[in-house]
Design a protein around this nucleic acid. Structure first.
Lengths: 167, 167
DNA sequence: TAATATCCGTTTGGTAGCAAACGAAATAGG
DNA sequence: CCTATTTCGTTTGCTACCAAACGGATATTA
């Protein structure tokens, strides 16, 4: 009797099962991890092509703006940490945001190695206009999920973040 | 009475709540989406620093090798599609894999615009050695989750992938 | 069969990302 | 003080990633 394939399984997942199903592999972990990555890519791409493109922002640029908005001005190293970027990468992102007129760099008098990054007025305007729309888009991305499912998803991912982050 | 903060909430999430909690935002969606991205970053970074670095592979390079292994040799455009990369990016990834001696390009006689990419023997050796170890690492990443939770996570993400992918 | 359109992989030009090297500035130790 | 050492942010050199332009090869159509 022909078994109908699980309709919830994406094509690539099904083919993987067919080709590797006879090997002693941990399929549950494999599917969980690869779907994390695929979901992140899909979400990022859609954001960048949609809302973010209207403001000329990449995902990283948006994140940086958002962190500065929520937390206030920060020293470069802390900003990198909070945005989850290397300090070298942050230098580049801030440079781009500076070109767009969204952030500014200020030298610290007391310790001239340090630099404070802060939002300009234009940057604050941008993020205040942008964020509600970004949040709507986030709602669309997970719109198929109930409130409980969203919370469950966030919680499961939280545990993955902790497991993957701590080494 | 002082309410203890939810210990399952990561620091950044808690601070966000504090700073934006009075705005009419969809926090459940926000946390779900941002955790997808943070988890993907953590997982990718850990993979690249661990197993993949031993073989000199990036995440994209590994994915490409893996797809060729599971699906067999493919024409460039199909490979790009399957790896979820633009065709321009794939050209670069394949170039790198060629340098490593893991894949080869073959011109198609019948249609000289096309190129077939296939694993070399070295490439097959590499992925056959690497994949079981990669799979173990995947198990560690989601090791805190029960089998049922892994499946639930994969299923929730599947729905996000579909929602974000279809535009 | 000649002109046009389409298709394919590569190239180009841009941002993003990392690790490691770097140089300036501050701190510690003697 | 004055030399080390540490701590900053930036630069460098590399891979990755995309969109769009490109140029050769095939299809289409008149």
């Amino acid at each position: 009797m022909q078994q109908r394939a699980d309709p919830r399984l994406l094509d690539a997942e099904r083919l993987t099962q067919e080709r590797l199903g006879d090997r002693p592999l941990d399929f549950d972990s494999m599917l969980a991890v690869s779907n994390i990555y695929r979901a992140a890519t899909a979400v990022r791409r859609r954001a960048e092509k949609g809302v973010l493109s209207e403001f000329g922002l990449s995902w990283g640029g948006f994140t940086t703006l958002w962190v500065l908005w929520v937390w206030g001005e920060m020293q470069s190293a802390d900003l990198a940490e909070e945005c989850d970027l290397s300090k070298g990468t942050l230098t580049g992102v801030v440079k781009t945001l500076e070109k767009r007129g969204f952030v500014q760099r200020t030298a610290v008098e007391a310790d001239r190695r340090k630099v404070i990054v802060s939002l300009t007025d234009a940057g604050r305007d941008a993020i205040e206009q942008l964020f509600p729309r970004f949040n709507l888009y986030e709602g669309e991305m997970v719109g198929d999920l109930s409130t409980g499912e969203k919370q469950a998803l966030a919680e499961l991912l939280r545990r993955v973040i902790v497991a993957a982050g701590s080494d």
